[in-house]
Design a protein around this nucleic acid. Sequence first.
RNA 1: CGGGGCGUGGCGCAGUUUGGUAGCGCACCUGCUUUGGGAGCAGGGGGUCGUGGGUUCAAAUCCCGCCGCCCCGACCA
Length: 580
Amino acid sequence: MLLRMSTLFLRTLREDPADAEVPSHKLLVRAGYIRRVAPGIYSWLPLGKMVLDNIAQIVREEMNRMGAQEVLFPALLPREYYEATGRWTEYGDTLFRLKDRKGADYLLGPTHEELFTDLVQREYSSYKDYPVILYQIQTKYRDEARPRAGILRGREFVMKDSYSFDLDDDGLKRSYELHREAYIRIFDRLGLEYRICSAMSGAMGGSASEEFLAPAENGEDTFVSCRECGYAANAEAVVTPAPPEVTAEHPPMQVLDTPDTPTIESLVQVVNEKYGLGITAADTLKNVVVKVRTPGSDEVETLVIGVPGDREVDFKRLEAALSPAVPEIFEAEDFAKHPGLVRGYIGPQILKDLGIRYLVDPRVVTGSSWVTGANEPGKHAAHVVAGRDFVPDGTIEAAEVRSGDPCPRCGGALSLDRGIEIGHIFQLGRKYSDAAGLDALGPDGKPIRITMGSYGIGVSRLVAVLAEQGHDELGLVWPREVAPADVHIVGTGKDNQIEVAVRLAEELEAKGIRVLVDDRQGVSPGVKFKDAELLGMPTILIVGRGLASGVVELRDRASGERQEVPLDEAVDRVVAVCRS
RNA sequence: CGGGGCGUGGCGCAGUUUGGUAGCGCACCUGCUUUGGGAGCAGGGGGUCGUGGGUUCAAAUCCCGCCGCCCCGACCA
């Protein structure tokens, strides 16, 4: 492959686009890899398309290697498929919907579980057909509430999604493991830094779902990891270790007069000044009211969550803990309907009588003593003991996770980082096969309900993640396997430099090296160097002033290392570098 | 949806407070010079100033409505 800058469809920009915030977005636009068409919708220009294709190819090779078979479903789908599983309505505003000329409902596929399930059901009917793993690399459409960061979170994006179909749980585990290993190979080949994070709380059982997160400051996900034992988990899935129960005797509950203490901070100050209790925010019990709506039901439950006062309720964690039910903010009008709940002074002592369910943070163990609301304006209560003065209805993982919190596996200190989700593997079970009635006929003539796994990789997102992890102040730095070309040859323009650069390019191409050559006339060397650095090919070969003395310069884009090479050795040296 | 900001040649911006010939840098075109760090000189092309209405002799600028976009919080690969 030989690309010539003189004819390549490319325009680099000297300035950052105004709408870009994160480095990958700025650089991909500046380097002419992508262009915006609409919010969250981008065009791929020649160089960008090559990177995208190269990534897709790696994914494809590794999926095929583990025995998955590629198919391709349409992106444009009729409503019926999503009607059966209820997702036509459940998906809400995120679904791109449209009508054909007859007025029939269609959608642009946000994900394809229904289609895969349906296809397997139509074609396969015997236990002898299973197991099977199918995948596609498809453009997906989601009308995201807020697309952002260029290609990182678009409304149109390319995703590899695969589905495994097995006869039993052991088979599902095997398919899951196959994917896990394939994903590791894919991300390793891409040279990515990533963590495999448990995406499900341990309470729900083990490795049923894991996320591959690429650490990045601009990431949208928060994950914890433990340096001691290697534990890593999405913040939503972190389990809080419970301290031991307390058996010591506590003084009886005491009501305190605490006017004007709407916040934990003010409460701690007043209690310590007035009553000399010497408490910290962690000794207080904060009670947060939420409404909980269960999908498919009109009922709304009022629920109180108790967390140590020094911690906020993390709404994402709360949501994950309550799923599939959805928590909502308890508004002023809701308080009006519940006169027993005194805003700012809620204590768990009366919740039983009010018939309100009360879930607490795991740190609120039996025998622990707290300062909490006394259910009267301006009053709090001290020595409120769990198990004695109130009995919670259970625990819930809703409190925020903080750096330094104990690791649930080994007790070490957890650190907190941001990451970008690049892959997700998930033991789905029988949700979709139940909906579709997907059975195989067993050897005994009885039907076997198929169990499924679903697995995704954000292919177009990976372009952004690679740019996010692979750049410096000069521009992009691609790993060789995804770069549009192995080597970027710069002919600086004086005398016969361009001519020699093109000759070297042709010789290298003949040896199977992917070459981009800057053969532009009348462009100053500075511009060519800047462009080479911005575009990010892993190797740069400069045919410039050294040519007069028979040498060219070989540079490594990532390390910046430079060396002079005799002209007649240049081809062999480049080939060696590209194949190493 | 809630909060903040912004819409002016392809891109990045000034001009709006105080109405009066639409401007700068980059990019693009022509010519000459230049060629190892985003070249110089000269000439040139290109803009419904987001949109609709209003005020005015006169609106990018003032008033009202609408639309769009970007950024921060709840979803997801």
